[in-house]
Design a protein around this nucleic acid. Structure first.
Lengths: 130, 130
DNA sequence: GTGTTTGCAAACAATTTGCAGAATT
DNA sequence: AATTCTGCAAATTGTTTGCAAACAC
């Protein structure tokens, strides 16, 4: 694999963020330091970095994928009002064996946990407008 | 809300299945008893039933949504080789409070857990072909 | 030089939507 | 009769891909 300035900029940007940006958001931000970059390149590198395990993809079911440079096991919280995604701070996360029980006969490589609800900020806004 | 033969057929079909069909699969099957139904109607009713809480949508991150008539809390397993999705049989599932810890400050309405790996059938096939 | 990566634009796949007519109440 | 739902087709959205030129080694 060869070095690419674009790929490095994408990874660097993701490492500064804990809010799990979408491909579009990555594109808009990386473009500031790298005005010629194209959205296709962003997608190509995000999926390359994902398959290398350097970043992870988060799927919330709202039709947009998000990306996270933190690949250590952790849970996510998705606000169904504003769409924001945040990390759930936890000292450690159970192993899949513990969570799934010993009897499950399929091989498990890993797992994801996604909580959902309405975040404090959105609740505040809803109160105000009611 | 008015009754519709199409909506009933969609829900009835989903209730006979534990394999979490995609919208396309629902369409292909419901069409057998209901040849005039359109894919748009299937999508409209799936999302209506989902927002009524009569079924649930499962997002595995492979670009296709799946649907499940079992809305009781349970976990899913996704085979990343064949794409199949199965239920994880468990007597009961922890509450979100237990899983997330008491300190998390956001309101949680619910959560999803998705395990992933290569299912037995796919592993068998991989052995054979190697 | 060779092989990988890029920018661009076109292609794609899944889902949503507008609308006139059909079905339900 | 009023309203909701449908089929159809076109539109939209997020993502992927083909290709010639640019870049890394």
């Amino acid at each position: 694999m060869k070095y690419s300035r674009q790929r490095e900029a994408i990874k660097d940007f993701l490492m500064t963020r804990t809010d799990h940006p979408t491909a579009e958001a990555v594109y808009l931000s990386v473009r500031e330091s790298n005005p010629k970059i194209s959205l296709g390149t962003v997608y190509r590198n995000l999926s390359l970095l994902t398959s290398l395990g350097e970043i992870q993809k988060i799927c919330c079911g709202d039709g947009v994928e998000r990306y996270d440079a933190n690949v250590a096991p952790h849970y996510h919280y998705h606000c169904t009002a504003c769409g924001c995604v945040m990390d759930v701070p936890m000292d450690q996360v159970p192993t899949s064996k513990v969570l799934i029980g010993a009897d499950f006969p399929e091989e498990v490589d890993g797992y994801t946990v996604l909580f959902h609800g309405t975040c404090r900020e959105c609740r505040k806004k809803m109160e105000k407008s009611s």
